[in-house]
Amino acid sequence: MFKPSTLLQYVRDVAASATFYSGILGTPPVEQSPGFALFLLGDGAALGLWQRDGVLPPVTAGAGGAELAMVVANPEAVQQLHDAWCGLGVQIAQAPVTLEFGHTFVGVDPDGHRLRVYSPAEGLVARD
């Protein structure tokens, strides 16, 4: 049995994307080369940024077909992160709003990958 632990985002410019993710995550990558950067997210999870034109087999899908979701403690934390990301110049695809699953907003990275921050609605189980 295995446990998936790393999400890979295919990016055009690893250095630019590593700078972007360092800003929103508040930590630098633990590993970085011209073609790859790795961020440790805690609890064994990691985010890898892989130079899109170096991926084998070649990438055929575009960005935006999936989201990296980040759980926070409460709606106030959603608003605080939204404000911080706006201060960093992050493109916001969805302003803070309460949906069926909780309070949320969506930012977009330089390659168009969707980044959802949310606080689960009362009674829902969150994995943080």
Results as ranks from 00 to 15, higher is better:
Ala18Cys: 09
Ala18Ser: 09
Phe20Thr: 02
Ser22Asp: 00
Gly23Asp: 13
Ile24Asp: 03
Leu25Ile: 09
Leu25Tyr: 11
Pro29Ala: 15
Pro29Asn: 11
Val30Pro: 03
Glu31Leu: 04
Glu31Thr: 09
Gln32Ser: 11
Ser33Val: 13
Gly35Lys: 09
Phe36Ile: 01
Phe36Trp: 13
Ala37Ser: 06
Ala37Arg: 00
Phe39Gly: 11
Leu40Trp: 08
Leu41Asn: 12
Leu41Tyr: 06
Gly42Cys: 08
Gly42Asn: 14
Gly42Leu: 05
Asp43Cys: 11
Gly44Met: 11
Gly44Leu: 10
Gly44Arg: 08
Ala45Gln: 12
Ala46Thr: 05
Ala46Arg: 12
Ala46Ser: 15
Leu47Lys: 14
Leu47Glu: 12
Gly48Glu: 03
Leu49Asp: 09
Arg52Asn: 01
Asp53Ile: 07
Gly54Met: 04
Val55Ile: 03
Val55Gln: 05
Val55Leu: 00
Leu56Phe: 02
Leu56Lys: 06
Pro57Val: 03
Pro58Trp: 07
Pro58Ser: 11
Thr60Ile: 04
Thr60Pro: 07
Ala61Val: 10
Ala61Tyr: 13
Gly62Tyr: 04
Gly62Lys: 09
Gly62Arg: 10
Gly64Cys: 02
Gly64Arg: 10
Ala66Phe: 05
Glu67Met: 13
Glu67Gln: 14
Leu68Asn: 11
Leu68Gly: 09
Ala69Glu: 07
Ala69Cys: 13
Val71Ala: 02
Val72Pro: 15
Val72His: 13
Val72Gln: 08
Ala73Arg: 15
Asn74His: 12
Asn74Tyr: 04
Asn74Thr: 07
Asn74Phe: 01
Pro75Asp: 04
Pro75Leu: 05
Glu76Ala: 15
Glu76Asp: 15
Val78Pro: 14
Gln79Ser: 12
Gln80Lys: 05
Gln80Met: 05
Leu81Met: 04
Leu81Lys: 15
His82Leu: 07
Trp85Cys: 02
Trp85Gly: 10
Trp85Met: 01
Cys86Leu: 12
Cys86Ala: 08
Cys86Ser: 08
Gly87Trp: 00
Gly87Met: 00
Gly89Met: 06
Gly89Asp: 04
Gln91Val: 01
